[in-house]
């Protein structure tokens, strides 16, 4: 393996780590956001839930901004193909992200329309929570591409059974992150409500997981022969079972940790299935966008690696520090 291939491989992993970081961190505030109007029965409960994510959601969302930037810098063709090809879907994601970003502040200052901002926060969280999974499902299942790496399908190409199922799987994983984080950060009646709902969300996660596996067998027969994907699947099963056991034991912290590890296992499966491809072409492997044919140059990948290795430890350090400042149950 030459230096360029090594760098391309490293960047495949680093971008996977960035997306995983986004999923597990912003996952819990997307999950709480989606469920907010259904779970909080009064102003105090809403304020408790919003305060549980208030100090950190913004930093969590930076993970997707950074993952997007890193994808742009490391694999510009993938950024170009996917973002232009999935145009309308991404506009819906942006619609969600815009409302999500303003709704928290608007809610806290605009007493007259609090109901509206709860619902816009919920919708703005739900759309990305669902659509990111659909997008990932599409690049795994493959999309029609031409020999110039351009997407040749349309909006409805994106809405096939397998990608939609991955959308639901991703949504359920995000909701489980949200529920288990809420269990960690709340107490009393509100916490009990989340304990009850967690079990339903857990059941949905497990159910969508099994269905995704079945659809993979139909649409991606090769994936059944991928040992690494099976190892990650086994890990997913273990973490989900542990999650359920500790949910039943009414533990506060372990369900969240297990949910996080389950989410990471999902990314492990996705990475195992994709490597070294980034976007599969329906027409055949000649047209796949891979880490080899869609990357930046060796110099750019090297510079980016230096940036990532100096910056990310710092980011992780102060993120942990700030989470510790706000640790414990939310006190209004």
């Amino acid at each position: 393996m030459d230096t360029l291939q090594l760098l391309q491989t490293i960047w495949f992993f680093l971008i996977g780590i960035l997306f995983t970081g986004y999923s597990v961190l912003d996952g819990f505030d997307l999950g709480i956001g989606t469920l907010l109007p259904f779970m909080a029965k009064d102003k105090k409960e809403t304020a408790t839930l919003l305060t549980s994510i208030g100090p950190v959601w913004d930093g969590n969302e930076v993970w997707i901004i950074t993952a997007g930037g890193a994808l742009f810098a490391a694999f510009p063709h993938v950024y170009a193909t996917v973002f232009s090809g999935f145009y309308l879907a991404l506009m819906l994601v942006l619609f969600g992200l815009i409302f999500r970003a303003v709704s928290l502040e608007f809610w806290s200052m605009d007493e007259a329309r609090r109901g509206l901002w709860e619902w816009s926060f919920s919708l703005g969280s739900f759309l990305p929570a669902l659509l990111f999974g659909v997008a990932l499902g599409n690049v795994i299942a493959g999309v029609p591409l031409n020999d110039k790496m351009e997407f040749t399908g349309d909006f409805f190409t994106l809405l096939r059974p397998f990608p939609l199922m991955l959308g639901l799987l991703g949504l359920s994983a995000i909701l489980l992150q949200g529920c288990t984080y809420a269990i960690l950060k709340t107490d009393g009646l509100l916490q009990n409500k989340f304990r009850r709902v967690s079990k339903w969300v857990w059941a949905a996660f497990a159910c969508f997981g099994v269905l995704s596996l079945m659809l993979s067998a139909v649409y991606l027969p090769d994936s059944m022969k991928n040992p690494l994907a099976w190892i990650c699947t086994a890990a997913l099963v273990v973490f989900l079972v542990l999650n359920r056991i500790w949910l039943n034991k009414k533990n506060d912290a372990v369900p969240f940790i297990m949910s996080t590890l389950s989410f990471a296992s999902l990314w492990g499966i996705a990475g195992s299935l994709q490597f070294p491809n980034l976007v599969r072409a329906l027409q055949g492997s000649d047209l796949h966008l891979t880490i080899y044919n869609s990357s930046s140059t060796e110099l750019t990948l090297t510079v980016m690696l230096i940036i990532a290795l100096t910056g990310m430890p710092l980011v992780i350090g102060f993120t942990i520090y700030v989470y510790r400042i706000f640790k414990g149950k939310v006190k209004l």
Binding site: V62, I65, G68, A70, F72, A73, H77
Partner: peptide
Amino acid sequence: GDIFGSPLAAEGIFSFFMESVFLGVLI
């Protein structure tokens, strides 16, 4: 993209995380 992507990624890594996380502390 070989040139233009890096500053956007670097903005996230070096600045935007820091700004968002510590604004949480201020608020």
